[in-house]
């Protein structure tokens, strides 16, 4: 969908026959009973239209006719549909779940696209052209050649304060976003600071308030001015929204309680990184714990480059 990706779309005709999903002749090796990347062409067309509209109106939730996918709601059916509509045979896919490449959700979605689209997969952020993510933005900066697809459980940032869909739509239409600050006010009144640590509301291009999916607020600054295309798919709620490359994305806050992108105040115990988002892992029942990078690719790459953390020396010994 962006300029650097077009070469993969203009494949020479002789290569087209070799694509999985295309079956001009029955002798081809990649003959499949399924369309490329699982969805039928009409569905892809419908989703791509929604994606184009979402990119044209940054932060606006575009309704789309979400399909049943062969996985339960909450496992990323929205993200899978968006990914399927974006994938081309030349793409290289990376799937992460809370930053990790090796958890159930990530593994099953990656395998799903390996089987239904036959695309190459990778765990390296830099090598991927499409990255489907659940609740993280990779630590490594993205490029213009990449698409980041988010799985979104509840796309409506105002939902927990205003249950009526008709009303929240009207609020978006008329830019009545005072209610969003009521939530932040409640945080400060109760906890002394803005305690919302994930799904932190943002305003996109000075217009729509958007839920950036449950990414930690540590990742919020990465939404802004990002060279990659960021697409958000909510399957159960049938909504698609997007942040185009190099968009202005501002986290909401108060003048006297400004937004802070917080993380655990530690270094990674495996690679020693001080600037990455950390997971806390309980290691026994006597209170021992370790902090490790939530982005496994980032952590592995650092370890391979010789970086060591507090606990990695013991493993070597």
């Amino acid at each position: 969908m962006s300029a650097p990706r077009t070469p993969s779309r203009a494949m020479p005709p002789q290569d087209r026959a070799a694509r999985p999903g295309n079956r001009p002749d029955r002798k081809g090796t990649a003959v499949s009973d399924y369309n490329f990347a699982y969805l039928d062409e009409q569905t892809k067309r419908m989703i791509r239209r929604a994606l184009l509209k979402a990119l044209a109106v940054p932060g606006y939730q575009v309704p789309f006719a979400s399909r049943e996918m062969p996985m339960p709601y909450g496992w990323g059916t929205g993200g899978v549909q968006v990914t399927a509509a974006c994938l081309t045979p030349g793409d290289r896919l990376k799937v992460i779940d809370q930053g990790a490449d090796d958890t159930t959700n990530a593994v099953s979605i990656r395998r799903f696209f390996q089987r239904t689209a036959g695309v190459a997969v990778t765990e390296r952020t830099a090598d991927a052209t499409v990255i489907q993510t659940r609740h993280r933005i990779p630590e490594q900066p993205l490029t213009e050649a990449q698409i980041l697809v988010y799985q979104v459980p509840i796309p409506e940032p105002l939902r927990f304060l205003e249950p009526r869909e008709t009303e929240t739509r009207k609020m978006h239409e008329l830019e009545e976003y005072g209610l969003m600050h009521v939530k932040l006010y409640e945080d400060i009144a109760r906890h002394g600071e803005i305690a919302t640590s994930y799904a932190y509301p943002v305003k996109v291009e000075g217009r729509y308030v958007m839920d950036p999916s449950p990414i930690p607020k540590f990742d919020n600054p990465k939404l802004a001015d990002n060279p990659a295309i960021q697409l958000f798919g909510a399957g159960r709620e049938s909504r698609i929204y997007a942040v185009p490359p190099y968009s202005q994305v501002v986290s909401l806050d108060f003048e006297d309680h400004p937004f802070v992108a917080s993380k655990a105040d530690h270094d990674c115990d495996l690679c020693g990184a001080s600037e990455s988002y950390l997971d806390e892992v309980i290691t026994d029942d006597r209170g021992s714990r370790m902090f490790v990078c939530s982005d496994t690719d980032f952590c592995n790459a650092r370890q391979a480059a010789g970086h060591r953390g507090r606990l990695s020396a013991q493993e070597v010994a």
Partner: peptide, 21 residues
């Protein structure tokens, strides 16, 4: 579901006040 202070403050925030104090 919102505290008394939040209830009173909502209209202020709706007309653009952004200073918590």
């Amino acid at each position: 579901g919102v505290s008394a202070g939040g209830n009173v403050g909502e209209r202020l925030m709706a007309v653009g006040q952004r200073h918590y104090g």
